[in-house]
Design a protein around this nucleic acid. Structure first.
Ligand SMILES: [Mn+2]
Ligand SMILES: [Mn+2]
Ligand SMILES: [Zn+2]
Ligand SMILES: [Zn+2]
Lengths: 145, 145
DNA sequence: TTGACAAATAGGAATGATTACTATATAGTA
DNA sequence: TACTATATAGTAATCATTCCTATTTGTCAA
């Protein structure tokens, strides 16, 4: 996975150059820390990790940097996180199309999706209560700016 | 869908009786408002709606009631909402198993899931950028209390 | 290599969502 | 009807996120 890592680091430099983002020690460190992470960290988790190296880095810098990385596509946001709690009165099995611009969630039904099998590896990791396909994208309303 | 609605209202009374939740005008109204909703409302959205009927209901009551409805299974929470932003450095297509107790998100890969087709109806609603299967449940760690 | 300057940073304050607190009111029931 | 555990309104506290500002720094053109 060394090549992979160099690739993504190159992407980091390229994207930063593209978007006129300066390569600072803070950004570089946050990028490295993210690359190591496998736990879908929160901003606060990353903050705690990078402080071991740069003890006076500010939380705001970490947070802002993570958001700018999200904007230039070096990382993604996990679906739904960072939004207010949203309540789901529709108890039938169904699926979601989420607009990443306006955060509208559209329900849809699909038998094929209902029937997907839970992989054995996942069955071992816990008990599944709910299966859902989440499609993310940009809805028609937001498409027209 | 009238029968359906009576069914779910009966479930509301039954579950409330089960769990010793009193049927108050506030809960009843919030239940009715939820039943009508198709937009995955936030607590604040429900608060605005119910105030038209009960003008001095408090936000806290609405919020608390929605959470208690979630606990007794009358409504669900939309996946991920209400959590801190979580960053996803893994840019390969993959899927998630989320523990609803500890909120750990486990990645897994699955070719069959990668290959699911986007329904035509959804294609019309917008541009899909990301397809992901989200399995929710309780992980092994949380299973043992 | 140097100087100018737009961009980025640290530190802290403001905002907004969520949760906690408490005195009063009320649903359920004997 | 009267009792009592619950629920409520109103408000305060907490926590994540975003904003502000004085200062520092990376980049680039000379
Ligand atoms: Mn839904
Ligand atoms: Mn993931
Ligand atoms: Zn949209
Ligand atoms: Zn768990």
């Amino acid at each position: 996975m060394k090549i992979e890592h160099e690739e993504i680091r190159k992407m980091f430099y390229d994207k930063c150059a593209d978007k006129r983002l300066k390569i600072t020690p803070q950004r570089s460190l946050i990028f490295d820390e993210l690359s190591k992470a496998t736990d879908h960290p929160t901003a606060d988790a990353i903050y705690k990790r990078v402080r071991k190296t740069l003890s006076n880095i500010s939380f705001d810098t970490v947070y802002r940097t993570l958001l700018s990385f999200t904007e230039i596509g070096i990382v993604n946001l996990v679906e739904g996180t960072g939004e207010q709690k949203r309540f789901e009165p529709n108890l039938h099995q169904h699926h979601h199309f989420r607009c990443i611009k306006c955060h509208t969630i559209y329900d849809f039904e699909n038998d094929a999706y209902n029937d997907i099998a839970v992989p054995k590896a996942v069955q071992k990791q816990g008990v599944i209560i709910n299966k859902r396909v989440v499609l993310e994208g940009i809805c028609s309303k937001c498409k027209g700016k």
